[in-house]
Design a binder for these strands. Structure first.
Length: 434
DNA sequence: TGAAATGTTGGGGCG
DNA sequence: ACGCCCCAACATTTC
């Protein structure tokens, strides 16, 4: 137990640059020990070859070597429940304060409250900062103080708020000497945490600017997909949201900007309505009598529905951890409406597979598809999985890439008749909403 | 960020 | 030339 230190606890903000809480910590009075905890409560739910676990591990190692090479400092990596690890940290160190960035998911809120209580029992301050969004919680609300539940007015108010504020992007370099120096901080390998290297990789973020026409083409036509793969990096904080907002503005890409605002829209929805994690935002929709056929669900998961564009999307997801956005809407609609399988099943499957999985967006978009969410698609909007091919993959390029067997005899027949399924869906929804 | 059913219009074939 | 039918193309409504 030497001189007092401050701790910065990394969670889903795995970068040094423009990290609000970290920079605040470095401006404090004591040397800062950066810490990451592999939370066993989260890890035990993941497959042992999870690509995101590998990505987090590799990112931490990169940060460690960057800190070691350039600043003779490091990053302490632990495994366990945050409770256990902090209980030990307060034993081993004279901690003046702990710094964290806000984390809004229900589990994270509970976890942080527990740590706050633990620290306060030891009379240690906990300082928290907004980092993963530009506007959080109650910063963009209606004049009467209620949250927006429709996107467009939220987006307008968001932009108005944005115009009336300044976006600060901070350089960490001048502050780095404040890190604890010359100590050999604990480290863990992938196998130390019970994981193995994943077969698929979370791709690097591609910062190449895109012409607006290119961007529009890309986001509408899955075969042309050149998207930046930004999602996972916003999820884990390896890219700063403030830098991305600036980039969207600089490139005058309104569509991209709006997508980033959708992300914040769903985040504030989850903050204000945490029950929507497993309950319909529109309660009537929880009366829908889902068919929930296990065998049909399996066919959907594996991309064996017999509808080539649906199968292409699911196979892209299974093989890469990514699915083009337009196909996400189609596969989601197919699951909920053609198969009448509960949106929560689809949400859970995407959560397991998507590298860019974000609870707020995933829940929000699945509820949108099922019709039960905020600002949702009307229940009678049922995508035709064949017409969608004509519109968005007319040359079958995307299909050929992910379902090369789609013209072969071994390729399955459609698992349900479209017309029958459509009418069945309308009947079931009508009955529930009556 | 839908698709199907239904309604309307107008050109062309044909008796 | 006229009326009739067919049907594609487009518009509107309905789910």
């Amino acid at each position: 137990m030497d001189q007092p230190i401050n701790i910065f606890w990394f969670r889903r903000d795995l970068r040094l640059d423009d990290n609000t809480g970290l920079i605040a910590a470095l401006k404090g009075n004591y040397p800062v020990m950066p810490v990451f905890i592999f939370d066993t409560e989260i890890l035990e739910k993941l497959p042992k070859n999870d690509a995101r676990a590998t990505f987090i591990h590799d990112t931490l190692q990169k940060m460690r070597s960057e800190l070691q090479d350039e600043h003779r400092s490091s990053l302490a990596i632990f495994s366990g429940t945050p409770q256990e690890v902090f209980a030990q940290l307060v034993e081993d160190h004279d901690i003046a304060a702990v710094y964290i960035n806000h984390d809004y998911e229900p589990y994270a809120k509970k976890r942080d409250k527990e740590i706050e209580d633990l620290l306060s029992r030891h009379e240690i301050d906990l300082f928290t900062f907004k980092d993963q969004v530009v506007f959080e919680k109650t910063e963009v609300v209606k004049d009467d103080g209620n949250p927006y539940v429709v996107y467009t007015p939220y987006m307008r108010k968001w932009k108005e708020t944005f115009r009336n504020s300044t976006l600060l992007v901070q350089d960490i370099a001048p502050h780095l000497p404040k890190l604890v120096q010359g100590q050999d901080l604990p480290n863990l390998t992938l196998s130390d945490i019970g994981f193995e290297r994943a077969g698929i990789k979370v791709p690097e973020y591609d910062a190449t600017p895109m012409l607006i026409q290119e961007y529009e083409a890309t986001r509408n036509f899955p075969a042309k997909d050149q998207t930046s793969r930004l999602g996972p990096h916003l999820r884990f904080g390896t890219v700063s949201i403030r830098k991305m907002m600036k980039k969207a503005l600089a490139e005058e890409n309104e569509t991209f900007w709006n997508e980033l605002i959708w992300r914040e829209f769903f985040m504030q929805i989850l903050w204000h309505f945490p029950h929507t994690v497993n309950k319909a935002f529109k309660p009537k929709y929880d009366r829908i009598e889902w068919r929930n056929n296990e065998e049909e669900f399996k066919k959907w998961c594996e991309g064996r529905t017999g509808y080539p564009l649906v199968d292409a999307g699911m196979r892209q997801l299974n093989q890469t951890g990514f699915m083009h956005n337009r196909v996400r809407m189609l596969t989601g609609s197919f699951l909920c409406k053609h198969l009448l399988i509960d949106w929560r099943w689809g949400e859970a499957y995407f959560a397991e597979k998507l590298h860019d999985y974000e609870m707020a967006s995933n829940v929000g978009n699945w509820q949108w598809v099922a019709g039960c969410g905020v600002d949702a698609a009307p229940y009678f909007r049922i995508f035709n999985p064949t017409t969608q091919i004509k519109k968005f993959d007319p040359a079958h390029q995307y299909i050929a890439k992910w379902v090369p067997d789609y013209q072969e005899l071994t390729y399955p027949q459609p698992m349900v008749d479209h017309k029958m399924a459509r009418e069945r869906c309308l009947d079931v929804y009508k009955k529930a909403l009556a």
